[in-house]
């Protein structure tokens, strides 16, 4: 097997963690051939799932699901629309927060505020745990600064979340340690601005306090997301 085929098999089986998991998730997002290889392994392995005994879930589980999907019966169009709105609600809220942050800055806000002709802010929303608040990244129009919001995320005292850019080639590049519970405006590390384009993949990993000691992800990768226009 080529190293990439090997990685696809390892990813499908669930063996990976740390930098390798990050690599694989980056490839899942950027390389259709890799994603197809993973899907093929998943199909090959799926018959093994028949060995697992069935177990009826408690009735309360369906009640919770039903409550979560309650509401007027939506049409396909509304479902699509609602999905878009939900995806961007966070980003739009943050764009407003970013504008406010800029207004409070000592230097003239019009230097940084998006104006006609400048690129739109890009946003990405990264899960750190299921059903927990997400880390929201808003890349400001000048691509030199970003707003990183981790509001609602509770520090556990043992780990920091660290943000990464996953380039299409080469190693992950650190975008800094996330301050849990806070919304912070941070500078984009030198040289990374040109890589932070629409569609670029970001990731968040759990690292020792203070961030990865090696400059590469060492802890589990919690999620990845692409930068998208609001």
């Amino acid at each position: 097997m080529t190293p990439r085929e090997q990685l696809a098999a390892e990813y499908a089986l669930g063996l990976l963690e740390g930098a390798e998991l990050l690599d694989a998730r980056g490839l899942m997002a950027s390389d259709p051939a890799f994603a197809a290889e993973v899907a093929q392994w998943e199909e090959r392995l799926a018959p093994l799932l028949d060995e697992i005994a069935e177990e009826t879930p408690p009735a309360a589980t369906w009640a919770r699901i039903e409550a979560a999907v309650a509401g007027p019966q939506p049409s396909a169009e509304i479902v699509r629309l609602r999905r878009r709105v939900r995806t961007w609600q966070l980003g739009a809220g943050l764009a407003a927060a970013a504008a406010l942050a800029l207004a409070l800055l000592p230097r003239a806000p019009h230097d940084l505020a998006p104006t006609q002709g400048t690129p739109a802010p890009l946003v990405a929303s990264l899960e750190v745990a299921p059903a927990s608040p997400r880390i929201a990244v808003t890349l400001l129009a000048d691509r030199r600064e970003m707003l990183v919001s981790a509001v609602g995320i509770v520090p556990d005292g043992r780990h920091n979340h660290q943000l990464w850019l996953i380039p299409t080639q080469g190693n992950p590049r650190s975008l800094g340690v996330v301050q849990a519970g806070l919304s912070r405006r941070v500078a984009v590390p030198a040289g990374l601005s040109p890589l932070l384009q629409q569609g670029a993949t970001l990731a968040v990993s759990a690292e020792p306090i203070g961030g990865s000691p090696t400059g590469l992800p060492t802890g589990p990768v919690l999620s990845t997301a692409k930068l998208q226009k609001i």
Binding site: I52, A53, E55, E66, V69, Q73, V79
Partner: peptide, 20 residues
């Protein structure tokens, strides 16, 4: 297409396997 009844049918048919 957002059909809750369809979700219920799929849940009834598959939840024991997936919960296992």
């Amino acid at each position: 297409q957002g059909d809750r009844q369809a979700l219920r049918i799929v849940y009834t048919a598959t939840s024991a396997k997936l919960f296992g």
